[in-house]
Design a protein around this nucleic acid. Structure first.
Length: 419
DNA sequence: TCTGGGGTCCTAGGACCC
DNA sequence: TCTGGGGTCCTAGGACCC
């Protein structure tokens, strides 16, 4: 039985790299990508990192600094990043028998049983680079947590050619001593603070901590992490993505909203998106929640609330869901506030064919299903929002404004033109 | 002072990830 | 003035049941 080999493939500065693929002028200059609503900095090129700009830092705080260094700054373009991600994953799937797409820019690979996993990883990395233009690093180890650490070394020490194997290294203690405990996968800011307070500063020290103590401080999750650091695999590769248990769509508004009419539009638009996501995974939802908030970081009157309904008939039918969402909104709306954000959450998610027929209600007519299928097909071919429900409005003053790059790979009218 | 025991389900809150 | 969005899991506590 060969020992298990996990690999983590991690794209470098993914969103920035996507932008650079389509505009060579962005190479070697500082580039940053902003979150929705242009609020935070969520992707940074190496040049931006060198300026000390943190991930998630509020844009307004660093705007001056970025301008001083002539940084190029983009709103996020998820159509582009999502499509590029699929291309990267497609290449990775050819390199390993089993692949778990962990996030938009990361995938775990099972390289168990492959004769020379490091060579295989090198080939995969080179092919990703060549076929998609995206640079990536790959780390190998006997557990996911160690593979993750290895991928950091792959990025940190370019001499290894972007691939680093931490399996069976005699200097593993030295390597783990170089890793700050807060950089271990699963150890967030709270746990880091607690561990530092107890004198544990490195991954090596965490690995050697007492089981009972770890479990008490960090729960069973933390103990799993410690086992993984010791080379005992506790987190299996999940090649088949389980259906989501909750589906959310929420946004901050471009401007403060005070009327229920505008909130109704926004909520209708969000619940429309939730319904699309439900149908995309062949699911229906039994529970719908709506929340609104005036959340600010400063002072002023604050109000936030949410309301949840259980649907008499679980569904993914947009008009029904809009109706329920509006009912929720009516329960919680209070005039006299400037709302900043709203969201819709679907839970109680089940496969669409698992509907429990209601004795007194007629089942979803097939015409309704056909309508939704048609709407989805049109929007898939012509772009999201080509056809939509009037309830989500046409003016959409609440929608944020942003300046993103072109959707080079998913829209004919935005394809890159070489002159 | 003593006050049954064991189980399930649900929810809220807190931690984590990208 | 300006601080994202979408997920996961665990734990503790309360309600309820026999």
């Amino acid at each position: 039985m060969p020992y298990t080999v996990f690999a983590l493939a991690d794209c470098n500065n993914f969103y920035v790299s996507c932008e650079r693929v389509f505009d060579p002028a962005l190479r070697d200059v500082p580039v940053a990508v902003l979150s929705n609503n242009d609020g935070c900095i969520i992707a940074r090129s190496e040049e931006i990192k060198a300026l000390g700009v943190p991930t998630g830092g509020p844009y307004f705080k660093y705007k001056r600094l970025l301008e001083q260094h002539h940084a190029r700054v983009f709103s996020s373009n998820y159509a582009l990043y999502g499509d590029m991600s699929q291309r990267v994953m497609q290449v990775l799937r050819q390199a390993a028998p089993e692949v778990e797409v962990y996030s938009i820019d990361e995938a775990f690979l099972h390289l168990t049983g492959i004769r020379c996993p490091v060579d295989q990883a090198r080939r995969a990395r080179d092919t990703v680079r060549q076929w998609t233009g995206i640079p990536a690093a790959i780390g190998l180890g006997p557990t996911k947590t160690l593979a993750k650490i290895a991928s950091r070394f792959a990025k940190r020490y370019p001499d290894y050619g972007g691939v680093f194997d931490i399996t069976d290294r005699r200097d593993v203690d030295d390597l783990l001593s170089l890793v700050h405990v807060g950089d271990v996968w699963g150890i967030g800011p709270q746990y880091t603070r607690r561990l530092l307070g107890q004198g544990i500063q490195t991954a090596c020290q965490l690995r050697d901590a007492r089981d009972a103590w770890v479990k008490k401080q960090l729960t069973i999750m933390g103990l799993r992490t410690v086992y993984e650091l010791r080379g005992i695999s506790c987190l299996p590769l999940e090649a088949v993505r389980p259906a989501k248990k909750g589906i959310t769509c929420s946004r901050s508004f471009g401007e403060r909203i005070e009327t229920i009419a505008a909130l109704e539009e926004a909520v209708a638009a969000y619940v429309t998106r939730v319904a699309e996501k439900l149908r995309a995974q062949q699911s229906i939802a039994a529970i719908l929640s709506v929340f609104i908030t005036t959340k600010t970081f400063g002072r002023g009157p604050h109000y936030q609330n949410s309301y949840t309904v259980t649907l008499p008939n679980p569904t993914a039918h947009t008009p029904d869901l809009i109706r329920y969402a509006h009912r929720c909104l009516a329960k919680i709306f209070k005039p006299g506030f400037g709302y900043r954000k709203a969201g819709v959450i679907a839970t109680g998610i089940m496969p669409q064919d698992a509907v429990q027929g209601d004795l007194f209600e007629k089942a979803t007519p097939s015409s309704e299903t056909a309508l939704m299928e048609t709407v989805d097909a049109i929007n898939q071919q012509w772009g999201r929002g080509t056809v939509f429900f009037a309830a989500s409005g046409t003016r959409r003053s609440w929608q944020m404004q942003q300046e993103r790059s072109k959707r080079y790979t998913t829209r004919w009218d935005e394809v890159l033109v070489v002159q």
